[in-house]
Amino acid sequence: MSSTTLTERPTRSTVFDGLSRYIPIGATVALLVAMYLGGIARYPNFDNPQLIPDLFIGNAGLLIVAVGMTFVIISGGIDLSVGSVMAFSTMACAWLTVDAGLPASVAVPAVLAFGIASGAFTGAVIHYFNVQPFIATLAGLFLYRGLTLQISDHDVSIREIDFFSWGMERVEFGEPRDGGFSLPYISFIAFAVVIVAFVVLHYTRFGRSVYAVGGSEQSALLMGLPVARTKISVYAVSGFCAALGGVIAAFYTKSANPLAGVGFELDAIAAVVVGGTLLTGGAGFVLGTVAGVMVMGMLSTIIAFQGNLSSWWARIVVGVLLLAFILLQRVLARSGERKRKA
């Protein structure tokens, strides 16, 4: 028996590997900490206990949408429609409550159901007609933006203020002067989305199938995994998250702007990539995406504290970061291949 027993040690050197796959997310977290410490050192009041919670208020929508995007990107796809779906959802909340006169308790679930359905439809188009995700979701980007503007080309105020005020009601954690802070309900919705997404992605069959499809769709098919269901589901998840992001925006602004969320899909993709998810699919983390969103939020905060910088600097820095992270991923992948050959 022993003569035919094979023993092989794993080579710890690939992008998917236990150690090096944590390098990008480690870099993101280190960057976040460095930015925070740098901010404290440089600006008075940067150590305000409300600063970090504020990141989760202003970026709750981005966080939710980016989490949905994480599913899509890990599966090897991309979803460009999320910004438009989000704007359409906010507008639909306004339209359903104002013009159709529906109660918010009906309008909001309807909008969320629409997000799931539109995502599932996009996923079905991508899978069954073998359309590039880029093109299929680009169609969604134009379609839903057009529909939004068709409903109204100007801002619409949302009725049922009672309901939509609920989202911004704050929960206090201690007294502000004792280092306490407060968070509105929308932040808790975002946290809930993150936790559910984390558990689903890492601890359920569906989640592991998402990784398998992203690793190799052909193999996943031959292994007998439900590839069609998985691909359709990730776009449905992304659609749901985009619609929920739209509802959050309704809570936040109490009005619907038809041009809200232009370019939002790109912010979400940037957050996902900065969070260490591989753009080619098959590897990534939900918590990485959280870190990615926080880096982007922290950037805007620092620029606001600086006061004399244009807000476009956030974009410039994000551009540089993206490039750095993509190069880092390539370098890791390549050193992995080299070590494996040797």
């Binding site: 998917f16 601890y203 592991r208 190799s216 052909q218 439900p226």
Partner: peptide
């Protein structure tokens, strides 16, 4: 079992062995 290995390299050996039929506790793997 094909000539070209049709498994997914990004998952662990265990996950590849049980992909689609993972042992579960409730809904969780």
């Amino acid at each position: 079992v094909y000539q070209e290995v049709n498994l997914t390299e990004n998952l662990s050996v265990a996950e590849n062995l049980f992909a689609g039929r993972e042992p579960r506790l409730g809904p969780f793997i």
